[in-house]
């Protein structure tokens, strides 16, 4: 194991977070605060409780998921796309590092960033609503698995993208709608039957449901199904990354 290389990549990526502290930290925190003001206070005052939980507390897991998913993808995709864009990837390709070590450095740093951010959003939420985490270990399990899976997904997007538009297109046009339609701000039971069925095809719905269960034991589907979905997605991403490294897709000529 080339631990110095892993540390170098990790440190390099974390340094970017320091350089872009406002964009990385402050912006998601402000967005979350705005969600609480708009949805928690303005709309939430009209929806008193969902399954015995105040609306403000109900949306906390969904809001954390929203930031976790988008930031994981953004951090990891940009991390690997930027060296491709600037041409500095030559150094990575000529270094004595295995693909696993490259992945550990980039995905590890991206996951650290998004997990830190999730805790920050959780703390911010605590300023607006009383927080209760019924199953903290499950909460951490979902948080870590989701962060790693979506960082891997972001890494894949970063490899696939050959321009900045492609880098943005999946997070903006696929992930954000899936999160919003996956029960961030509502329970699936509140939807008409047709849309309830449609929601079942949204993988993000299972993540939010499982994550919400770890907070206040409210779930639209069994927590084991949620765990199976995130495990399956993790396996799929790992398999895709393995194929990318094996074939050199969009990395090597």
């Amino acid at each position: 194991m080339n631990r110095y290389a892993v540390a170098a990549i990790y440190k390099f990526e974390m340094a970017r977070m320091k350089r872009t502290i406002f964009q990385s930290i402050l912006s998601p925190v402000i967005s979350t605060s705005l969600y609480f003001i708009v949805f928690g206070s303005a709309i939430g005052s009209r929806i008193t409780e969902i399954d015995g939980v105040s609306y403000g507390a109900f949306i906390v897991p969904g809001l954390i998921m929203l930031s976790l998913l988008t930031q994981s993808i953004a951090n990891a995709s940009f991390g690997i796309y930027f060296p491709k864009f600037t041409g500095t990837i030559y150094e990575l390709l000529s270094a004595p590092v295995s693909y696993f070590e490259v992945l550990l450095g980039y995905v590890g740093a991206a996951a650290t960033k998004s997990i830190l951010l999730s805790f920050l959003i959780l703390a911010t939420a605590g300023l607006f609503v009383p927080l209760e985490i019924a199953h903290p270990w499950w909460m951490l399990l979902f948080l870590f698995m989701t962060a790693i899976s979506f960082c891997l997904f972001g890494f894949i997007i970063g490899i696939w993208a050959d321009n900045f538009e492609k880098l943005q297109i999946i997070p903006l046009l696929v992930i954000t709608p899936l999160v919003f339609l996956g029960g961030t701000f509502y329970s699936v039971n509140m939807l008409p039957p047709f849309w309830q069925t449609v929601t079942m095809f949204n993988p993000v719905f299972y993540l939010i449901s499982g994550f919400r269960w770890s907070f206040n034991e409210i779930a639209d589907v069994s927590v084991m199904i949620s765990l199976a979905v995130i495990s399956g997605f993790l396996a799929l991403c790992l398999l895709t990354v393995w194929w990318i490294f094996k074939t050199g897709y969009h990395i090597k000529q």
């Binding site: 440190k11 340094a15 270094a95 590092v97």
Partner: peptide
Amino acid sequence: DTVSFSRGLFGKKP
């Protein structure tokens, strides 16, 4: 930073 990064990437301790 960039020169130190290269040293680490090539497996040498700082």
